[in-house]
Design a protein around this nucleic acid. Structure first.
Lengths: 207, 207
DNA sequence: CTGTATACTATCCAAATGTATAGTATATGC
DNA sequence: GCATATACTATACATTTGGATAGTATACAG
């Protein structure tokens, strides 16, 4: 595969930059204007070369139909936006946007499952889950709904706040093992509202 | 804020689906064709309503300039694709695509820094870093280049393989503390090639 | 009953846009 | 020297495209 010339690379960079800025794909004339070409043919010429070398494709006679086919974009999976809640409201209502603190965007493969409407994230506070290697400041991604299994880490609602607990079965009965000294070690799972099962974790180390 | 009608929601869903399939934004006529409208005016009508309700914006007289302004897309940050290496080659050469196993895509804010060309990821093998709460199977994101500071976790190249180590200074001299029993506890940092400093971590829990 | 919003059909227009043709000038390899 | 690729200018043209105008039908609130 041929490499791009510097001029062609600049054009490709511009196209990618526009896409990154979530602007529509540039037209020939927009590209020409950006680089100061007096004729949009120059842009077309560059695009033809970049196309020939396999870096972009476009549909004939279709406005703004440029697509970059970088090897990474092929690998790149669906990006999911998962909302981060400060604390989950009791009812787990539908109006999630209001209580959202922000969101993490990760690709589906990295976290190992496909986020649904019932997927959300929490910022972990306190070191109560340090034995499960979850630290203060970590972001945990949870799934709301499924029945937790023995040993799963779950978020439970206690006094209006979400707390991470370990789910256990003791002689068939479901219990939550609190890692926080403020609460008794074993709590019958029925008495608490389990809000989600931890599926993934995102940590950012101090710089 | 008003809610969308079912028909308007369908149109908005179509626009988002097209974007997700990395196709260019649909035109009025493409929307009309997709829904079987005989007149593209119908699509324009819907778009006007969706615009009025604040879910999309578009530039006047600009082809395919629709943009969805969902509250999450506003929050959504730049997505970075970070390549995952099985093991880092000694020279940290420029041809990274060849050795890439895949990539993680995360937004810049979540990992707390802006990835550069020197950012890469490694899949952790072994439990040697368990005291630093890094587990087997975790993906660590590293930055190549900067001088590590006391206590940083770094990736070092030993026998052609990247191993995570803790960087220490002992009476001014830099050392690496190996967490792997195969290697001596303290290694002078000069003897090893430090390939990167761990900046973030991504874990996926078993389902 | 009346006004308003929705959900369309049908047609027209001007601007935006991709493509084509015709050149000029500069490198690079054979 | 000569073909080939790059890197442009200049202009013309058919389509694509957004937007405007005109009209029909339905549902709903006051």
């Amino acid at each position: 595969m041929h490499d791009l010339t510097p001029a062609q690379q600049r054009v490709l960079d511009f196209i990618q930059a526009e896409a990154l800025a979530s602007r529509p794909n540039p037209t020939l004339r927009e590209i020409a204007t950006h680089f100061g070409f007096r004729s949009h043919r120059a842009a077309a010429c560059h695009l033809e070369a970049i196309k020939r070398k396999g870096f972009i494709v476009s549909d004939p006679r279709r406005a703004r139909s440029l697509r970059v086919v970088s090897p990474w974009l092929k690998i790149r999976r669906r990006i999911a936006d998962i909302p981060i809640f400060g604390s989950i409201p009791a009812g787990f209502a539908q109006n999630r946007e209001q209580t959202t603190e922000g969101c993490v965007s990760v690709d589906v493969e990295s976290i190992g499952f496909k986020p649904t409407r019932n997927t959300f994230a929490l910022r972990v506070t306190g070191d109560s889950m340090i034995d499960r290697h979850i630290l203060h400041g970590d972001i945990v991604v949870l799934e709301h709904g499924p029945e937790p299994r023995h040993g799963d880490i779950v978020a439970a609602l206690i006094d209006g706040e979400s707390t991470l607990k370990t789910f256990f079965r003791k002689s068939g009965k479901p219990y939550l093992k609190a890692e926080n000294p403020k609460y008794p070690d074993l709590i019958p799972a029925q008495e608490l509202m389990i809000q989600g099962v931890v599926r993934a974790l995102l940590r950012r180390l101090e710089k």
